[in-house]
Write a protein that binds this DNA or RNA. Structure first.
Length: 578
RNA sequence: GGAGGCGUGGUGUAGUUGGCCCAACACGCAUGCCUGUCACGCAUGAGAUCGCGGGUUCGAAUCCCGUCGCCUCCGCCA
C-alpha cells in the first residue's frame, strides 16, 4: 500500500464498492468500544472511517490512533446504514470500511485542535502556525488566494502583459514610507533598501519598450502595523504604455470583474467613478464605503441663513441622514458624545416626526432654522439628521466617520462588494511635519493637464491623474499616469522644494532615462492581501498571509527578528548602539 | 510616540468590593466501560504557586508600583 488513489473530496456515492486509498490527518475519533469512527481530513475535506472488531489488526491500530496522527487508509467505499447519513458533511452518506491502515506519523497532543473553533488566542495560533493552517476555515483562505492569483496571472498574460521581476535589493528612495535597509558587506557603510514598490523599475521598463508589465511583487514598508497592514505584503503591480487614463481604468476594472467571476463566482456591478472632491463632499472620505447608506448632505449654503452664528458662518456644514429610525434620546446623546470624541465641538440633531420635529437646535436656530436644515437635507417623516459644522474638510470627514459608525451600530451596512474609482486626487498636500509640500501619491504622478498653468502659483489646487480603487471603504489599489517629460518632472521636483543637487543625487538616473525617449505611461498597484481578505470576509490580513507578523512586527514561530552574533555585524561593518 | 482592552491548568473562561481559592467550570488529555457515532455517551483521574519583578498586608489571582507579551485604534503608512 502506497501513495493514495483519491483526495477525500473526490470520493462520493459514485465510488461505492470501489477500493480506495486515502491519506490524511485524524480530525476526530469516536471510540465506542466495539466500534471506532475516525474522521480523516486531507486538504480537500473530511471522510469517516469505520472500524469493526472483526478485523483485529486494523481495529487495534485504529484504537491507538489519536488526534492529528497521520494515516493512510486502504479500504472499500460503502454506503452508511439507512438513517445514519450526516447531512452536515459533504461525504456524509458514505464511509470507508478499512482493509489496511498505516500510521505514518504520530502526533503529540497539540496545544489546540484544528477541529476546534477559532477561539484560541492568536499568539498561540501564530506560534503553532502549521497547526492553525490545518483549520479548514483558514485553509479556505489560501485556496481562495490561489484562485485569485491564478485568475490574475491568466488575465494579464492573455492581455499581453509581461511578468518581469524587479530587484528586491534596491536603492533607498526619499519620500514615502520608511525603508527596510539591508547593509552591504562588499560596499562598506552602504545600504540597499527593500522596495516599497517596484515603482521606478516598472517605469524604466516602459522606457525600455516592454509596453505592458505586471508582477506579483513582495514589497516592504517599515511602518507600524494594523489589522490591515503588514510590514511585508504582496502587490499586483502593473504598468502600461500608450494608454489614456480611462483605458487603464477600464482594463483594470475588467481584470477585477474577471477575478471575482473566476475565484468567487461573483458578478460585479460596473464600478462607480467619482472625483476625489466629490468623494470628500459626499462621504467625507477618499475611500467611501458605498454599503453604508446614503451620502452626506452639504448643508453649508442652507446654514448661511439660520439665526445661529456658529452655523451660519461655518466654512462647512455637513449632515448625516439616518432614515426611518426614531432614535431614543439616549441614542442621540451617544452620537453627540461620539462626535465629540472624534474631535467635533458639538453635533446637532433633528428628528422629523409626523406631529413635530424634535431637535437639539430649537433654542439656537429657532423652529424655522431647524425646518430649513431639515428641508435642505430632504428629511422625511421618521428620518433623523445629524449636523456637524467646522472647517472645510474637517466637518465632512467627521460626518463621514459618523455615517460609518452609525451604519455599523444599526447593522445597516449592506452585504456584498461595492467598488468605486476615486479620481483626480490632489497632486500635492502640505506636510506640517516637514514644513513643505509633499506629493500626495508620488513625485512621478502626472498633473492634470488643465491645472498645469497653476502648478507653481497654487500647487495645492492642482489635481493629478491619480486614481484609487476602493472596495467597501478600503483602499484596494492606487495608481496614476506618470510624468514622462523630463522638463515637467523637473518642475514638480522644484515645487517640492528639492534642490538640483538633491534631484540629481536621488532621481538623476530616472530623469536621465526619460531623456532617451520615454513613452506616455501609467499604472497601478493592487494590495493582493487586502483583496483576498475582503473576498474571504476575513477581519485581519494575518488570516490571509501564511506566516504573518504580530502587531509589534515579530514572528512568534521563528522568533524573528533575532539578535545576530558579533561576527555577522562586523562583516557588515555595523555596530549596535545602546 | 499616544490611548484603550486583555494576560488564571494544554485550550477557552469564572473568580478580581483582599480571607470561604494550595483556585472553579467546559473542552482537551489519561485509564476503564460502551457495535452506528459524527461536539458520541458514562465513570474515574492527572494537570495551574493565577504573565514576570517588587511593594502594602496577619493574609494577595484580587490592592499599589514597575515591567513584558498579545489585540484594537490614533500618529505613521509617497
Amino acid at each position: 500500500m502506497a501513495g493514495r488513489t483519491h483526495y477525500i473530496a473526490e470520493i462520493s456515492e459514485q465510488n461505492i464498492g470501489q477500493r480506495v486509498t486515502v491519506a490524511g490527518w485524524v480530525h476526530r475519533r469516536r471510540d465506542h468500544g466495539g466500534l471506532i469512527f475516525i474522521d480523516l481530513r486531507d486538504r480537500s475535506g473530511l471522510l469517516q472511517i469505520v472500524a469493526e472488531p472483526g478485523q483485529t489488526d486494523v481495529f487495534e491500530t485504529l484504537a491507538r490512533v489519536r488526534g492529528e496522527y497521520v494515516m493512510r487508509v486502504h479500504g472499500v467505499v460503502g454506503p452508511r446504514p439507512s438513517g445514519m447519513a450526516n447531512p452536515e458533511l459533504a461525504s456524509g452518506s458514505i464511509e470507508i470500511r478499512p482493509q489496511a491502515v498505516e500510521i505514518l506519523a504520530e502526533s503529540k497532543t497539540p496545544p489546540f485542535m484544528p477541529s476546534e473553533a477559532e477561539a484560541v488566542d492568536e499568539l498561540v495560533r501564530l506560534k503553532y502556525r502549521y497547526l492553525d493552517l490545518r483549520r479548514p476555515g483558514l485553509l479556505g483562505h489560501f485556496l481562495l488566494r490561489d484562485r485569485v492569483l491564478h485568475a490574475v496571472r491568466r488575465f494579464f498574460h492573455d492581455h499581453g502583459f509581461l511578468d518581469v521581476e524587479t530587484p528586491a535589493l534596491a536603492r533607498s528612495t526619499p519620500e514615502g514610507a520608511r525603508d527596510f535597509l539591508v547593509p552591504s558587506r562588499v560596499q562598506a557603510g552602504r545600504f540597499y533598501a527593500l522596495p516599497q514598490s517596484p515603482q521606478i523599475f516598472k517605469q524604466l521598463l516602459m522606457v525600455a519598450g516592454f509596453d505592458r508589465y505586471y508582477q506579483i511583487a513582495k514589497v516592504f514598508r517599515d511602518e507600524d502595523l494594523r489589522a490591515d497592514r503588514q510590514p511585508e505584503f504582496t502587490q499586483i503591480d502593473v504598468e502600461m504604455s500608450f494608454m489614456d487614463r480611462d483605458q487603464i481604468l477600464d482594463l483594470m476594472e475588467a481584470m477585477l470583474h474577471q477575478v471575482f467571476q473566476e475565484a468567487l463566482g461573483t458578478t460585479l456591478e460596473p464600478f462607480v467613478r467619482m472625483s476625489w472632491r466629490d468623494a470628500m463632499r459626499l462621504y467625507g472620505s477618499d475611500k467611501p464605503d458605498l454599503r453604508a447608506g446614503e451620502p452626506l448632505c452639504d448643508l453649508t449654503q442652507a446654514a448661511r441663513t439660520v439665526a445661529w452664528e456658529v452655523l451660519a458662518t461655518a466654512p462647512a456644514v455637513a449632515g448625516v441622514l439616518v432614515r426611518q429610525l426614531a432614535p431614543s434620546r439616549r441614542q442621540l446623546d451617544g452620537w453627540v458624545a461620539q462626535a465629540r470624541q472624534l474631535g467635533a465641538p458639538g453635533l446637532l440633531w433633528i428628528v422629523r416626526e409626523a406631529r413635530e420635529t424634535r431637535s437639539s437646535g430649537h433654542k439656537l436656530l429657532g423652529a424655522q432654522g431647524v425646518e430649513r436644515l431639515a428641508d435642505a437635507a430632504g428629511l422625511l417623516d421618521g428620518d433623523t439628521l445629524l449636523v456637524a459644522a467646522g472647517e472645510d474638510p474637517a466637518a465632512f470627514r467627521l460626518a463621514g466617520q459618523l455615517r460609518l459608525e452609525i451604519a455599523r451600530q444599526l447593522d445597516r451596512v449592506m452585504p456584498g462588494f461595492k467598488f468605486l474609482w476615486v479620481t483626480d486626487f490632489p497632486l500635492f498636500e502640505w506636510s506640517d511635519e516637514e514644513g513643505r509640500l509633499v506629493s500626495a501619491h508620488h513625485p512621478f504622478t502626472m498633473p492634470h493637464a488643465d491645472d498645469l498653468a497653476i502648478l507653481e502659483d497654487s500647487p495645492l489646487e492642482v489635481r493629478s491623474e491619480a486614481y484609487d480603487v476602493v472596495l467597501n471603504g478600503s483602499e484596494l489599489a492606487s495608481g496614476s499616469l506618470r510624468i514622462y517629460q523630463p522638463e515637467l518632472q523637473s518642475r514638480i521636483f522644484s515645487v517640492l522644494g528639492l534642490s538640483a543637487e538633491e534631484i540629481d543625487a536621488k532621481f538623476g538616473f530616472l530623469l536621465q532615462a526619460f531623456q532617451y525617449g520615454a513613452p506616455p505611461h501609467g499604472g497601478i498597484a493592487f494590495g493582493l492581501d487586502r483583496l483576498v481578505m475582503l473576498m474571504a470576509g476575513a477581519k485581519s490580513l494575518r488570516d490571509v498571509i501564511a506566516f504573518p507578523k504580530t502587531a509589534r512586527g515579530t514572528d512568534p514561530l521563528t522568533d524573528a527578528p533575532s539578535l545576530v552574533d558579533r561576527r555577522q555585524l562586523s562583516e557588515l561593518h555595523l555596530g549596535v548602539t545602546q
